[in-house]
């Protein structure tokens, strides 16, 4: 059975090497880049950069069991960045769903996509549902078509 002593485990915190500090600094830069990217390219770029910053900061611990000050800063920035971007994503999706359930907006969207592509937005959802077995029509409330139906009725008169 392998034991603690045979795994280079040392209770004392060994001095950090230059390589470890350089890696921690790199992790901080990547974390800062992810924070900056949150303003320019939200969600996608920060979701790539922030986890990379965390992993680099963890590796920068080297033989030590604690993160250095710089590494801790990198992890903090990256975690804040991930949290903020998850919140942004959640709010965006929530807004999209709530807008889709607004009959006036839904009718406008249907009209717009029909003008652009020749299909209404609801048709597109139905095609996707039929092709991939998804349930987007129900999820996005595509049945709400009263205003559009009203417009068609007015047009036919």
């Amino acid at each position: 059975m392998i034991t603690q002593e045979q795994t280079l485990h040392d209770e004392s915190d060994p001095p950090r090497s230059e390589a470890a500090e350089a890696l921690a600094v790199t992790a901080t830069f990547v974390a800062l880049a992810s924070v900056g990217a949150s303003f320019v390219f939200p969600v996608f770029v920060p979701f790539i950069l922030a986890p990379v910053a965390i992993v680099l900061a963890i590796i920068s611990k080297g033989r030590s069991f604690k993160l250095s000050q710089t590494g801790r800063r990198a992890v903090t920035f990256a975690l804040i960045c991930i949290g903020v971007n998850i919140a942004v994503l959640a709010l965006t999706l929530r807004s999209a769903f709530s807008l889709m359930s607004d009959p006036a907006y839904h009718a406008q969207l249907n009209q717009m996509t029909e003008n652009m592509y020749g299909y209404t937005f609801d048709d597109m959802l139905r095609i996707i549902d039929e092709s991939y077995g998804t349930n987007l029509t129900e999820m996005l409330g595509a049945e709400v078509q009263e205003p559009l139906a009203g417009n068609e009725a007015e047009g036919s008169l």
């Binding site: 392998i2 034991t3 603690q4 795994t7 280079l8 485990h9 040392d10 090497s17 390589a19 470890a20 890696l23 963890i58 590796i59 920068s60 611990k61 080297g62 033989r63 030590s64 069991f65």
Partner: peptide, 15 residues
């Protein structure tokens, strides 16, 4: 504890 020690050695070799 043992896995922590092993991973510390791994990180050091990677630096």
């Amino acid at each position: 504890r043992v896995s922590t020690g092993i991973k510390a050695g791994a990180r050091f070799s990677l630096l």
